[in-house]
Design a protein around this nucleic acid. Structure first.
Lengths: 129, 129
DNA sequence: ATTTGACTACGAAAATATTCGTAAATACAT
DNA sequence: ATGTATTTACGAATATTTTCGTAGTCAAAT
């Protein structure tokens, strides 16, 4: 029952969220240093983006120190779910399993990962009986 | 080795592509009638979008009759792959299997679909030996 | 031949997203 | 205290996407 709000981050916002999810709470500079490695954007661009994300409620921040610390307010899982759902609907004809096969097909997954998926499938079938 | 180009349709373009993939070649009116059911956009809006898609090479068209017939030039599969890849990278920490579990979790898939996935996994494991 | 209706072309407005420059605030070192 | 470096705030320029109005074309019906 987690979350009913529509999470719709833009492309750039998603990149920032991803970093926040991975590293946990971080400053603008932290984020910017990561982004800098793949794109070239100015520092204030990152800052502005994060301020906009604050307005939208995608993040909040601790302003008790001069250098603010930002934190994602939307969970990675909810966001994943949201985006997946949309993608399945629009690009995979509404079929989750079609997406699954496609995802497994063109990526390498370790044997352990595959086993985990199989175990999960077994679990589902058991429950559905 | 189908396709090296970067397919990056916008949100609206993707909706149109989805319809073209499903119905095959279609006129602007065909597309618009489908879109009309979920959003309210004017006819010329759809037309303009499709003209832009033509410029970008996402579609081509048969102009031998007055009413042009559009056809997707990018395949559904290539587009799926492209979008999936990006999504896995940015939202699923690079792990395809993480995406798979998430996709299976919150959607209903039929027993037959699940079996198909399992069969596929078995196939992969066999080959990797 | 004229009207009517459906179509395309196209420019441009409106909405949204991205980028950046500049100013003000703060902390720290000299 | 003054200078330096780092930060935030914020307006505004730019770029991109979406929307639509208007004009012109064509074919079929009157």
């Amino acid at each position: 029952m987690s979350n009913h709000k529509n999470i719709k981050p833009t492309e750039s916002e998603l990149e920032i969220l991803a970093i926040l999810w991975e590293k946990g709470p971080a400053t603008v500079r932290d984020i910017h240093e990561v982004l800098e490695q793949r794109k070239d954007a100015g520092y204030t661009t990152t800052l502005k983006l994060m301020q906009i994300m604050l307005e939208k409620g995608l993040v909040d921040r601790d302003t008790s120190n001069k250098t603010h610390v930002y934190r994602a307010t939307v969970s990675q899982k909810d966001t994943q779910q949201q985006l997946l759902s949309k993608m399945i609907d629009t690009v995979f004809n509404g079929s989750a399993s079609q997406l699954v096969l496609q995802a497994l097909g063109n990526r390498h997954s370790s044997a352990a990962e595959l086993d985990a998926i199989k175990a999960y499938l077994d679990e589902m079938e058991k429950k559905s009986k």
